[in-house]
Design a protein around this nucleic acid. Structure first.
Lengths: 367, 367
DNA sequence: TTGTATGCGTTATCAA
DNA sequence: TTGATAACGCATACAA
């Protein structure tokens, strides 16, 4: 005795089957299990008993077909194995399930074709809401196929949206990258860096935004022109090449597109005999857990990744409930000072400091 | 003009709607879109045109209800933000989607109640197959509610399954933890460690298995009794306490339950003035990407995490296709030698070596 | 080659 | 308080 998911040869458990055994009609069973007050306590209990005994679990497909609501949320992200995406997904899934929603997941790998395919999956499954994390697909293309008022974009990466341009007024969750990277420059300048470099990745909105912010801050500080280094999307797996280019033209301070790139560059530089922070100061972005475990610990801009995922789910569920999608938000970031940056008083090569607590400075976000 | 997921006020796109506009019956539309050879090329094209124009996307719920198959796979894991689980999930999702399956995800957080709830979600959605990663729930409890021949357990953590006992004959994907941890001990012994410790986490099957393997290997090597340290499930976030206990009773070689614990303990030990590898050799388990970026780089036992996820999906899809679930498998692990272990020739404190390539030694797996 | 009719499992409306 | 019935969107057996 089991339902469709149980052993194959046995009869499926449906309302009808329960009705038979309980000697009532299907609608009575439906109502009894739905706690309909119109049903007498006696029959409700009887029905319940039979249902439990048969191990009844409602069929989501049938229910959605009838109710025009699936109680599922779609979640699209670039790569489940990336720590940042994993943390966003964790926040999203937790919040979703807390509200009784199931998550359908699809990865896009930053590839337009795969993202389109993932989108089709979401449409097929008629998710009540969809969140797209760091996707490169054009928002207007999404809106053509998905209800715009049931759609949340987290850190959208379509290039046209760089530097906050052309952003939808509702349903976007972003982090104040501009403020964050300006802070990074500010921190380096404070510590006496006279030359600053930036290692970027890819042609995405965030890279454009981040590089532009760094460039602007460097100019405003009156420093020599930013030294720009370009890396491929998986340079963090094979950082030797970028690291070599950086080593040949070493700035006093180097800001990286993201933590995992910073950590791998730090490692690759060490192989080239370049030590952080003695030979240069290094700053990352993201605040992934391992940035706090590296040696030296990474100075980085921390973004509230879990909260971004949680918020995305919350906004979707709220939109489903109230019919109104919340306005776009810009979350603040924090400067987490580690050991990978230090004052660059000419010539001094301070010994690595022992473990210190990591101070945090907050910046950006909504006014 | 759009389907259910599009703007709310417009008519949904169904086969019926296409049929109207194309001037044919619903079944003709259904067949045309399904490439039924019985349909004339002319009507097929006409139907196609209308469908495209309306942006038709089939309704998965309706299709599953009718076909008794959802083309979805359920994936349950402990924590999306954990790098190991993320990598397994990535392998799983990629393989699933490659075969046209959609992934429904649910996290259990190593908590029995949450795992039960996640299980119910899978039953409700009638996933064609389900994979459970590192779950603590009793396999027989799972089998009572999910078709056993559509179920894959990856690294099951129910304590009763420790050391490979009571394992189902089919549908289990494991890694040879025993061989791996014996290798770890072997490596330390080779390097002259005279005292060995183990830091375990939780009361799960893998912890029991790993600790037992280390204990056995230590005994066989004729070393003094293993020094056991116990840590909580999130000791890696707050390692100070364990680290202090370890520092008070420092072995020459320390083996950790997993990489992220090893990395955080290494960091915490440094804060206590204990340096790896000079003051002790340290070995982890998992082979997460950041183990290769730490300083010193971590010596670890690498398990094929992405492949485990991929294989789980492959086994499920094969079982769905052929009706037969593949026998359980035991995958081999590799010893990845980093910089966190070094020969313990009495008194010598070798300077850290510069970057070296990481040799790998394979062990375990099926005969 | 195409159309008609039925059922998948629910929920909800209308009667009784 | 309960039952009969229709409809959600699709696939298919059977008719034409």
């Amino acid at each position: 005795v089991t339902n469709e998911s149980g052993p194959a040869n046995v009869q499926r458990v449906t309302l009808g089957r329960i009705a038979e055994l309980a000697g009532v009609s299907i609608s009575t069973v439906s109502r009894a299990l739905a706690d309909d007050p119109q049903i007498s306590a006696r029959t409700r209990e009887a029905v319940r008993r039979v249902a439990d005994q048969l191990g009844y679990v409602p069929n989501a497909a049938a229910r959605s077909l009838r109710s025009l609501s699936t109680r599922t949320l779609g979640l699209m992200l670039g790569d489940l194995s990336d720590p940042v995406h994993g943390l966003v997904a964790a926040g999203f899934e937790t919040e979703a399930r807390r509200h009784g929603y199931t998550v359908v997941i699809a990865t896009g790998f930053g590839d337009l074709a795969m993202e389109r395919d993932a989108l089709r999956v979401f449409v097929e499954h008629r998710n009540d809401g969809v969140a797209l994390i760091s996707t490169v697909i054009d928002p207007s293309e999404i809106r053509a196929v998905l209800r715009p008022d049931r759609l949340v974009l987290v850190a959208p990466e379509h290039v046209r949206l760089a530097e906050g341009r052309d952003l939808p007024e509702r349903g976007v969750v972003r982090v104040d990258e501009g403020a964050g990277f300006e802070m990074a420059v500010g921190h380096l300048v404070e510590q006496g860096c006279r030359s600053i470099g930036y290692v970027g990745v890819g042609l995405t909105a965030s890279n454009v935004t981040r590089r532009a912010a760094v460039e602007r801050a460097v100019r405003l500080a009156g420093l020599p022109p930013l030294r720009r280094f370009a890396a491929g999307p998986d340079a963090w797996r094979a950082p030797r090449d970028v690291a070599a280019r950086i080593a040949r033209d070493l700035p006093e301070g180097l800001i990286c597109y993201e933590d995992k790139l910073a950590l791998s560059i730090m490692d690759a530089l060490r192989a080239l005999g370049v030590e952080v922070p003695n030979d240069l100061s290094l700053v990352g972005f993201d605040g992934i857990p391992f940035a706090a475990l590296s040696r030296p610990r990474l100075t980085t801009i921390t973004q509230p990744v879990v909260e971004m995922g949680r918020l995305a789910a919350e906004m979707l569920i709220e939109a489903i409930r109230t019919g109104e999608l919340r306005p776009s938000v810009l979350l603040p970031v924090e400067l987490t000072i580690g050991e990978s940056t230090r004052p660059r008083t000419a010539g001094s090569r301070t010994a690595e400091t022992a473990a210190s607590s990591q101070p945090r400075v907050r910046a950006g976000g909504e006014p």
